[in-house]
Design a protein around this nucleic acid. Structure first.
Length: 599
RNA sequence: CGGGGAGUAGCGCAGUCCGGCAGCGCACAGCGUUUGGGACGCUGGGGUCGUAGGUUCAAAUCCUAUCUCCCCGACCA
């Protein structure tokens, strides 16, 4: 491609809204163009990167016997109604009606359609197992798109779905996808770690997320450097401290004016925050056991005062669809007092319609805590779970945090930020049962297909690669996904036609040899061309000018580390191909076997 | 949805407080001089000042409503 004809525009300054490096550089390099919040055009340079990422995904999916399909973006509501997600998912799902008033949605993900497809084709165990994948557009009406391509509303996802006859088959296949995902990310030059994750709206039994570590990440990860334990903070567990073994003391009311926070309370009483119980009041949307309809349920969560509530753990413990903070009116309606609340003496009608009391296991094991008296400016001392109030559930509700002890080895946990670039889920039968995706086994019994699903966001992956590979001059693309592998900077002008001829010859030779080369033949000054080559991040730069030609050489420079040198004209094509191969070899060296057990 | 910020030429911004010809830099077009790390001079094109309504002799500027975008939070695969 000749840059004189390339549809692009570089900018010295990025639009004001771009704050993170990856976003600024994609805009400055003219790879994407925003047209609405979280919706972007891809320009030719950006699209070439995207296509190269997708080619790598296809190779790795094919390598584990994936078969590519293409499913629609627009789905009939009926498919999503069968799994209940038409109701469960809120306004993240874009819905529309056709001319006859029938309901449709834009696909946020494709479990329903995939399971429906499988049900149409599969009838026998002989057809299993298999994996289907596609690289396709998703639309999720995010409440807050942000950070350029990191969180968008319309995006391209590689999503794959496995179909097995039993869990043993899924358990055997899952680690192959796990390895495949590391291959994809490493071939794209992206360092990731895999962490245990919540199954969220997907449902299922096991899930991992592939996280690119970066301070701009939206997820907090809890990791142990000593034993390798790592998990999303949403599900991370840790070794809780031993509770005191003291005998329960008589409960005692104390006057604690103005102590509406744990910190104030502990200071006022001269005790540690660990000696208090913290009450968190929430309204949960749950499914009513009798009617099946959604209803709001008051939930009283209790964690130790020095710990934070993990809302994901609570959500899973009570099978809630979502949580929101309770209002002061709602808190008083159940007999509690905001700022001085505890489950002691709450209205607990036998019909189960009262507040649900969910208590962290550490609180249940700790004797003689300070808790609210449900009366303004008063707390109780020596509160003991079981004696002073009953818990509906005693579970782990506490958020893991930096400095706590690793559940596996007792080492010190660290918290880091990451961006989720991929995820893999063991789905089980949720979708196959709903969609009637069954097969007949050897005995003629009808059984639901066991599913797994596996996703990677391509634009997010690109953004993370730039986030990791950039400097003050611009992007430093890994050779595997660079828009072009080589750029020729022509220093020809009207006064040196011999340089023009040499540039044209070199360009023609490289093209003929199949080199992925971009020619900067614009009538710009050298500085402009060098700066644009840096900004675009082309890995190998060739400079063709009178100075080198006089000595029979072309200069080269690697974008990655600034390494430079001269290549003789006589062997230029082979030498350039060798440089390209060397760059690929660096990436291939990062490919190693990954064991699922380590995560 | 809550809090904060911003909408003026393709991009970056000034002008708004205190109403009075819509500006600057980059980019773009033409001419000339330049020509190995974002050149210089001259000339030129380009703006419903987010939108709608109001006040006023006069509105980018004041008032009201509304839309959009960005950041933090909530939410989220």
């Amino acid at each position: 491609m000749r840059m004189s004809r390339l549809f692009f525009q570089t900018f010295r300054e990025a639009p004001a809204e771009a704050e993170i490096a990856g976003h600024r550089l994609m805009l400055r390099a003219g790879m994407i163009q925003p047209i609405a919040a979280g919706i972007f055009d891809f320009l030719p340079l950006g699209l070439r990167v995207k296509h190269k990422v997708e080619a790598i995904m296809r190779q790795e999916m094919d390598a584990i016997e994936g078969q590519e399909v293409a499913l629609p973006l627009v789905h009939p509501a009926e498919l999503w109604q069968r799994t209940g997600r038409w109701q469960e998912i809120g306004s993240d799902m874009a819905r529309l009606k056709d001319r006859n008033g029938r309901d449709y949605c834009l696909g946020m993900t494709h479990e329903e359609v995939m399971a429906d497809l499988a049900s149409a084709v599969v009838s026998s165990y002989r057809q299993l197992p298999f994996m289907l994948y596609q690289i396709q557009t998703k639309f999720r009406d995010e409440p807050r798109p942000r950070a350029g391509m990191i969180r968008v509303r319309e995006f391209t996802m590689k999503d794959a779905y496995s179909f097995d006859r039993d869990f043993a088959g899924l358990d055997a296949f899952y680690p192959r996808v796990y390895q495949s995902y590391f291959n994809i990310f490493r071939r794209c030059g992206l360092d990731v770690i895999a962490v245990e994750s919540d199954t969220g709206m997907m449902g299922g039994t096991m899930a991992h997320e592939f996280m690119a570590l970066t301070p701009v990440g939206e997820d907090t990860l809890i990791i142990c450097d000593e034993c390798g334990y790592r998990a999303n903070r949403q599900v991370a567990v840790f070794r809780k401290p031993e509770a005191d073994a003291a005998a329960p003391l008589p409960r005692e009311e104390v006057h604690t004016p103005g102590t509406t926070t744990i910190q104030a309370l502990a200071e006022y009483l001269g005790i540690s925050q660990a000696q208090t119980a913290k009450a968190v009041f929430l309204m949960a949307e749950v499914q009513d056991e009798q009617s099946g309809a959604a209803r709001e349920q008051f939930v009283f969560a209790v964690v130790r005062g020095d710990m934070e509530l993990n809302e994901t753990k609570l959500t899973n413990a009570i099978k809630a669809r979502r949580l929101r903070p309770a209002t002061p009116e709602e808190i008083r309606a159940v007999g509690a007092e905001p700022g001085f609340g505890s489950p002691i003496g709450l209205e607990r009608p036998a019909n189960g319609n009262g507040a649900w009391v969910i208590v962290d296991e550490l609180v249940a094991a700790s004797p003689n805590l300070v808790a609210g008296a449900n009366k303004a400016d008063y707390h109780y001392k020596n509160v003991n779970v079981g004696r002073d109030f009953e818990a509906d559930q005693v579970v782990d509700l506490t958020a893991a945090a930096e400095g706590q002890a690793c559940v596996r080895c007792g080492g010190t946990l660290a918290a880091v930020r990451g961006v989720e670039v991929g995820n893999i889920f063991k789905l089980g039968t949720k979708y196959s049962e709903a969609m009637g995706a069954t097969y007949l086994d050897e005995e003629g019994n009808s059984r639901p297909i066991i599913m797994g699903c596996y996703g990677i966001g391509t634009g997010r992956l690109m953004a993370c690669v730039i986030e990791h590979h950039n400097d003050e001059h611009g992007i430093q693309w890994p050779i595997s996904i660079a828009p072009y592998q080589v750029i020729i900077v022509s220093l020809a002008n009207e006064k040196n036609p011999e340089v023009t001829q040499a540039v044209e010859d070199i360009y023609a030779d490289l093209l003929a040899a199949g080199v992925d080369v971009l020619l900067d033949d614009r009538a710009e000054r050298a500085g402009v061309k060098f700066n644009d080559a840096d900004l675009l991040g082309i890995p190998i730069r060739l400079t063709v000018g009178g100075k080198g030609l006089k000595n029979g050489v072309v200069e080269y420079k690697l974008r990655r580390n600034g390494e430079d040198g001269e290549l003789p004209l006589a062997t230029l094509t082979q030498d350039v191909q060798a440089l390209v191969q060397a760059e690929f070899a660096r990436l291939d060296a990062t490919l190693v076997a990954e064991s699922l057990e380590a995560a």
